[in-house]
């Protein structure tokens, strides 16, 4: 067990770094597709197409670009996480009621002020649930990292497969499942606290 802890931490690290990067890129892309009507289809389609590329193929392509190691798996996770985040940001911003956007405009808010003061705060619950989906997905996809020489819990699982050892597979898989459940639980709690009062009713 003692040599499992560094693997768990590394796994978590990979996922969290990837998540942070994808949140930044995803929300920005979501805002851009909301602002620029002609861009929204292109951005959402691209994110969807990325989502359909098989893990193995995407890793292989990225490996050519980034070589072996954690950077490649992080890049892959970022790409996979984009769709739920971009889409939820876009839908969230779109679904802020027209009358609130009108009110904000009528009060004399600039486009950026409307976004920061009204539209983003109101679509936050949806954006956050997109992030949650992305993080939980990333935890399991990150296991694939072992194929391109990245660290994390993919290693014990891979060894387990090679040695036909169920025990080893479980030693790798169970922490992944537990982390996924724990993160989902924690993020749901945070979500509820944030949504508590200031929601559109």
């Amino acid at each position: 067990m003692s040599n499992l802890m560094p693997l768990i931490l590394e796994h978590l690290m990979i996922v969290l770094i990837a998540a942070s990067i994808s949140v930044v890129i995803g929300v920005v892309l979501g805002i851009l597709s909301y602002w620029m009507n002609y861009l929204d289809k292109a951005i959402l389609w691209t994110a969807e197409i990325i989502q359909t590329i098989p893990n193995l193929a995407l890793l292989a392509i990225l490996m050519i670009l980034f070589g072996l190691g954690n950077v490649t798996i992080i890049a892959a996770l970022v790409l996979y996480a984009l769709l739920p985040i971009v889409r939820n940001t876009y839908i969230g911003l779109k679904s802020v009621p027209i009358y609130l956007k009108d009110a904000a405009r009528g009060m004399g808010m600039s486009k950026l002020q409307r976004l920061m003061k009204v539209e983003l705060p109101l679509s936050f619950p949806l954006i956050f649930s997109g992030i949650k989906i992305a993080v939980v997905n990333s935890l399991s996809i990150a296991v694939m990292g072992v194929l391109i020489g990245a660290g994390g819990l993919g290693y014990p699982i891979y060894r387990g497969i090679q040695t036909n050892s169920m025990e080893r597979i479980l030693i790798g898989a169970i922490p992944v499942v537990l982390m996924a459940l724990l993160l989902d639980y924690l993020m749901t709690k945070v979500e509820k606290r944030l949504v508590h009062k200031g929601s559109v009713n």
Binding site: P97, Y99, L100, D102, A103, A104, G106, M107, K117, V118, P121, L122, G198, S199, V200, N201
Partner: peptide, 13 residues
């Protein structure tokens, strides 16, 4: 000043 039918108070404030 601007007042609308749907009231339009910002629910997050």
């Amino acid at each position: 000043g601007y007042v609308i039918q749907q009231i339009g108070l910002f629910p997050n404030m």
